[in-house]
């Protein structure tokens, strides 16, 4: 890790992002510098995102279509950049120069999709235990497993353990998705627009819930959103991403009293 020759000489908007200087990259929770060109002909989109941070709570904010989801997917391994590198919690997940490209299965990150992507054919218990079982069959509807029981209790999901995703409330779905990810002890939580699909009242409650949860578990978290309130509540460091480039960053959201 110490041999990482810094790429800050690269031509993109690293200037703001590298407020933590190059020598500190070792301690960085996340260090990203990736490029990708999508589409062809007239409708071309160029992603050139570079940022690094030592904070445990990172928010990437920007208008939709700006490349936020792509960036998050690249970190999870669901999208392969053309070149660049991604380091997370001291591990290189991706680096074109040393031909490292860990499979999504090997990255040990938790990815929370916008609509949670719970498995509709499995109940809450089975959803949470999904990644723990590496067999050809899904865990049984009643399969007892101490880790699953722990998260069912911790997230107050025990009463609905046998219900299916379509029977759950928005908050229960989010907690099930979080439990399903956290039970595997991921290096970091990646959340893709976690509250975009819920109504405003529920959004406030779920945001508070996530905020408290992250503080309780102190698991690193990267949230992408277009909602400034998310950045205010959840972001220790906020990056602004527009048209495929990080244009601004700050400790906390400008105008917010917290940090």
């Amino acid at each position: 890790m110490a041999t990482v020759v810094d790429a800050s000489a690269s031509d993109t908007a690293v200037d703001d992002a590298s407020s933590t200087d190059a020598s500190a990259t070792d301690a960085a929770l996340i260090d990203v510098d990736i490029r990708k060109t999508l589409g062809s002909g007239k409708r071309q989109f160029r992603l050139a995102v570079a940022f690094s941070s030592r904070c445990q709570r990172i928010v990437i904010i920007g208008p939709s279509g700006g490349g936020k989801s792509l960036t998050l997917k690249a970190i999870a391994g669901l999208m392969t950049p053309e070149q660049g590198r991604i380091q997370l919690a001291g591990t290189t997940l991706f680096d074109t120069r040393s031909s490292i490209d860990l499979a999504p299965q090997a990255r040990r990150v938790a990815f929370l999709f916008q609509d949670y992507a719970l498995f509709p054919h499995l109940n809450v218990r089975q959803n949470i235990g999904f990644g723990l079982s590496r067999h050809w069959l899904n865990p049984g509807a009643d399969s007892g497993c101490p880790e699953v029981d722990y998260w069912l209790d911790a997230f107050n999901l025990a009463p609905v353990a046998h219900q299916f995703p379509h029977q759950l409330s928005g908050g229960q779905r989010q907690r099930t998705a979080l439990a399903r990810a956290l039970v595997l002890q991921p290096r970091a939580l990646l959340l893709d627009e976690p509250f975009a699909a819920v109504d405003p009242l529920l959004r406030i409650r779920m945001r508070t819930e996530l905020d408290e949860l992250q503080r309780r578990l102190s698991v690193p978290m990267i949230v992408i959103t277009h909602d400034p309130l998310d950045a205010e509540v959840l972001g220790d460091q906020v990056f602004y991403l527009q048209d495929g480039v990080i244009t601004d960053s700050g400790e906390g959201w400008p105008g917010a009293g917290r940090g």
């Binding site: 498995f119 509709p120 990644g131």
Partner: peptide, 12 residues
């Protein structure tokens, strides 16, 4: 997305 979710959860 469900298949991607399973990928991130570590399944081949």
């Amino acid at each position: 997305q469900l298949e991607q979710a399973a990928q991130v959860l570590g399944l081949s």
